[in-house]
Amino acid sequence: MPCDLVSVRLLTPPDFEPWSALRHSLWSDQSAEAHLAEIEDLQRRQAGTCYGAFRAEVLIAFAEISIRPYANGCTSTPVPFLEGIFVEEDNRRMGIARLLLAQIEADLRAKGYVELCSDAEMHNISSHRAHQHWGFIETERVIYFRKPLGRDPRSRTNACNA
């Protein structure tokens, strides 16, 4: 189906359930119900701007933008950040993500922003390719580390003297 039959607009409360289902498809580590609760919280706190692509009034894709105080590789602050973008599998490779991004970019330019940033996990090569296809430029690669701070058996002593 051609992309010209797709409309893009901001997501509103009637879109929350289908949006949560699409979010679950992208981020399957939590249930659609948990995503719905997160969406409601995001909207209540006005913690971002979320766009949807619709075909015949059915949500087929979404993109979420937040404003971060800083993002690695950026030249401006604060910076709009593409937190997530997803197109249903049957609607991929039709320019729908590009259509979403075109609307987002126009809205951000109108608000005075000069760049849009994003990230992708290092192993997600298809996301890297998609970002390059959409005109993003890779700025740096980072590996995050985590060290759990369980109860230290030496906690009765001063760490500096240990």
Rank of each mutant, 00 (worst) to 15 (best):
R92K: 08
N72A: 12
A71N: 15
P78D: 02
F86L: 04
I67E: 05
L82C: 06
I96N: 00
S76K: 13
G84M: 03
R68P: 08
G73Q: 02
R68K: 15
I96V: 00
I65L: 04
P69M: 10
D90S: 10
S76C: 13
R68E: 11
I65V: 04
P69K: 09
R68G: 14
I65M: 06
T75S: 12
R92V: 06
P78M: 03
D90L: 14
I67R: 06
I96E: 00
I65Q: 04
T75A: 14
S76Y: 07
G95C: 03
G84F: 03
L82D: 01
G73H: 00
E89Q: 12
E89A: 07
I85H: 06
C74V: 07
P78L: 03
E89R: 08
D90K: 15
N72I: 11
G95H: 02
F86K: 02
S76H: 15
I85M: 06
G84V: 02
D90Y: 12
V79C: 00
A71D: 14
R93T: 12
V87H: 02
T77D: 10
R92W: 07
E89G: 08
D90P: 11
V79A: 01
N91G: 13
R92A: 02
L82I: 05
P80M: 05
S66D: 13
I65E: 04
E89I: 06
S66N: 12
P78V: 01
T75I: 14
I96S: 00
E89N: 07
R68D: 12
P80L: 08
D90T: 15
R68Q: 15
I67Q: 05
S76F: 10
Y70P: 14
N91W: 15
C74M: 08
T75H: 15
P78G: 02
I67G: 10
M94Y: 06
P69N: 15
G73C: 01
I85T: 05
C74A: 14
C74S: 09
E89T: 11
P78A: 03
A71G: 10
M94D: 08
M94P: 09
I85P: 03
N72G: 09
E88P: 05
D90W: 10
G84R: 01
I65W: 04
I96D: 00
M94K: 13
N91Y: 09
